[in-house]
Amino acid sequence: MKRIVKRVLSVSLISVTLCLASCGNNGNAPSQTDNMASPSVPSAPTPEVPNPDTTLNKIKFKLDGETEAFSFKFKPDGAKLVDARDAEMARLTVDETQKIKIKNPADEAIGYVVSEKGYWKIKNADQTQELYVLRRQTDGDYKLETGSDRQIYRIKKRDYGYEIETPDKQSLYKVKLKNGKLSLRNANEETVLYTKDDFLPIALASFGFDELTREQQAALAYAVYLSGG
């Protein structure tokens, strides 16, 4: 009986040995060269970087009669104000604090707009003087003042948008949104500027602030647009 058991164990051991040897010679097993090579790791897909030339947005502003007046061309670092022929009128560069630097076509700084909670300040080129301040009121109205707190315009909230008035309540302009058309109209209800692009009514009101230069109007409008009013 003991001999039988020994013979069974011997046969089993031989079978296991032959099986292991067969597996070791299998073509699917890694060779010595394979073991020395670095493991193949799938590379992460390269993120697709959008081409600025194809992703820039543009907001067009037109005069009555479909004549293009100027446009905002959005850039990765801000925006450009360009005329109907696409010539640069001003460059608006935004930093991480949303302070906007206004530069002329010669790349010279001509002013700044600083955005704070509830107000926007227009400063001179060397940032030593506050020229104008647009303030949002608790009732939804706005007012434009000089840096010395002299009120220039009252911007009253209306059902149709906003009305720009003098301090003694003389109507100057109205900003109206109707059927997807946002327009700036003078006291005679004549459209002086409009856009059919997505823009804020209170931002468009900046172009009715005649005391400001066009560059200051544009920078203020852009600052208000960025902050959502």
Results as ranks from 00 to 15, higher is better:
Val113Leu: 01
Gly147Pro: 03
Lys156Phe: 09
Leu63Ala: 13
Val114His: 10
Lys101Gly: 02
Trp120Ser: 10
Leu172Cys: 08
Gln151Ala: 03
Thr195Gln: 00
Ala187Ser: 15
Ile122Ala: 02
Gly229Trp: 00
Ser12Val: 10
Leu134Val: 12
Ile59Tyr: 02
Leu92His: 01
Gly78Arg: 00
Asp149Cys: 05
Ala29Asp: 09
Ala21Leu: 13
Val49Trp: 01
Pro76Gly: 06
Leu81Ile: 12
Ala205Val: 07
Pro105Cys: 07
Asp159Tyr: 03
Lys6Gln: 14
Ser71Phe: 09
Ala84Phe: 05
Asp168Leu: 07
Ile122Phe: 08
Thr146Asn: 02
Glu215Arg: 03
Arg3Ala: 11
Ile14Phe: 14
Ser12Thr: 14
Tyr225Glu: 09
Ile155Cys: 06
Lys121Asp: 06
Ala37Tyr: 10
Tyr194Gly: 08
Cys19Lys: 05
Leu177Asp: 11
Ile110Tyr: 04
Asn57Lys: 12
Leu134Asp: 06
Asp34Met: 14
Thr166Cys: 07
Gly78Trp: 04
Leu200Pro: 00
Tyr132Thr: 08
Glu66Val: 00
Phe61Cys: 02
Lys99Cys: 06
Asp141Gln: 11
Thr166Glu: 06
Asn186Ala: 06
Leu131Phe: 07
Leu193Phe: 01
Thr33Gln: 14
Ala221Met: 07
Arg154His: 10
Ser171Ala: 13
Lys101Arg: 07
Gln151Arg: 13
Leu81Gly: 00
Ile102Cys: 11
Asn35Phe: 13
Pro45Arg: 10
Asn51Lys: 02
Glu211Ile: 13
Thr93Leu: 13
Val192Phe: 01
Glu68Lys: 14
Lys58Asp: 07
Tyr173Leu: 04
Phe70Tyr: 15
Glu116Lys: 12
Ala84Tyr: 11
Lys103Phe: 09
Asp139Gln: 04
Val49Met: 10
Leu177Gln: 08
Tyr119Pro: 02
Ala125Ser: 15
Thr54Lys: 11
Asn25Ser: 14
Leu184Arg: 08
Ala205Met: 10
Ile4Met: 10
Arg150Tyr: 11
Gly65Arg: 03
Leu144Pro: 04
Phe74Gln: 13
Gln151Cys: 04
Lys2Gln: 14
Ala79Leu: 11
Met89Tyr: 00
Ala87Phe: 05
Tyr142Met: 04
Ile155Leu: 14
Asn28Gly: 14
Ala109Trp: 04
Ile122Trp: 08
Ala106Gln: 15
Gly118Ala: 08
Pro42Arg: 06
Phe61Ile: 04
Lys58Pro: 03
Phe209Arg: 00
Leu226Lys: 02
Leu81Trp: 09
Glu163Ala: 15
Gln216Tyr: 07
Glu96Phe: 14
Lys75Phe: 05
Phe207Ala: 09
Ala79Asn: 01
Glu108Val: 01
Ser40Leu: 12
Leu212Lys: 06
Leu56Asn: 13
Asp149Asn: 10
Ala125Trp: 05
Trp120Gly: 07
Gln217Pro: 07
Ser38Thr: 12
Asn35Gly: 04
Ala44Lys: 15
Lys103Met: 15
Ala106Ser: 15
Lys73Ile: 15
Val175Glu: 07
Ile14Ala: 12
Gln217Arg: 12
Gly65Phe: 12
Ile100Cys: 09
Glu145Met: 06
Thr166Phe: 01
Leu9Tyr: 11
